[in-house]
Simulated assay, not measured.
Amino acid sequence: MPTAIIADDERLMRDQLKSRLEQVWPELEILDEAKNGEEAVALVETHKPDLAFLDIRMPVKTGLEAAKDIGSKAHIVFITAYDQYAIQAFDHGAVDYVLKPADVERLTRTVERLKARLTAQSQPNDMSIMLSQLAKQMGIAPKPDYLQWIQASIGQELRLIPVEEILFFQSDEKYTRVQTATYEALIRKPVRDLADELDPALFWQIHRSTLVNAKAISGVVRDLRGRHLVQIKGLTEKLEVSRSFVHLFKQM
């Protein structure tokens, strides 16, 4: 008896797909259901199903990210609500898909393909290259692995600092100052390197030597010389914005 798991963050969609599958493929056993991509990966590890039905857009991990982690442990079937251009991308990649909400006629065609694969006892495809192409075609960029912690020195002590607690980084010729709300530390990595390793949505570069946590900005003022200065919440210190980065604050 073939087995499967279903992953979709919408319960109604999970229930509807399950109901449609019972109609067109009564022999298929649905072992479990997941609400996000991370749960789907865990269910595949636990149950070792033949098939994994994965919604493309899910929290925590998308369907594409989950499929990459699942690899060749199960045949992947994507659940998608995309238009015809995206469906062509699936067809050209020979990836099985279900268009949601699940239509009995279309689902029947997908099931026939899946049955043929399982009957032939073909191994699940390694889809890593295909997944990257699909993500690019469908505008779902993989999430970069940004720094989550900074290892910094405070006197003789080495401390791990969560990046979300850091208000700003500021470099001089030798060190980079790491400023939090309660203390400062030093690291040897320059701002130009940190700029590539930190989430640009969280840390804005305002000067060639300064990165500031956008959530820590309380305002921007201009001094008598016409310079833009960033005010940091909880600090009296102001950080200069170079002309190259003034555009970041046009709407503020």
Rank of each mutant, 00 (worst) to 15 (best):
M1P: 10
M1L: 08
P2L: 02
A4P: 08
I6M: 03
A7P: 12
D9Q: 11
D9W: 09
L12Y: 06
D15F: 08
Q16N: 12
K18S: 10
S19D: 07
W25H: 05
W25M: 03
L31D: 00
K35R: 13
G37V: 12
A42W: 05
E45G: 06
E45F: 08
L51Y: 08
L51I: 15
L51S: 03
A52F: 05
D55E: 08
I56Y: 05
E65P: 01
A66T: 02
A67H: 03
D69P: 02
A74F: 04
H75I: 11
I76M: 05
I79R: 03
T80Q: 04
Y82T: 07
Q84I: 10
I87V: 15
I87T: 08
H92E: 14
H92R: 14
D96F: 09
V98H: 01
R106E: 14
T108A: 14
V111E: 14
L114F: 14
A116H: 13
T119I: 06
A120R: 04
Q123N: 07
M127I: 07
M127N: 11
S128T: 14
I129M: 10
M130D: 10
L131G: 05
A135P: 00
I140M: 13
I140D: 09
P142T: 10
K143V: 07
D145A: 15
D145V: 11
Q148R: 15
S153L: 02
G155Y: 09
Q156P: 03
Q156W: 04
L158E: 04
L158D: 00
I161F: 05
Q170E: 15
K174R: 15
T182N: 13
A185K: 09
I187G: 02
P190E: 06
L198R: 01
I206V: 15
H207C: 09
S209W: 05
I217E: 03
S218C: 06
S218V: 00
V221G: 04
D223P: 08
L224T: 10
V230A: 09
L239F: 06
V241L: 11
S242P: 08
F245Q: 12
K250L: 14
K250V: 14
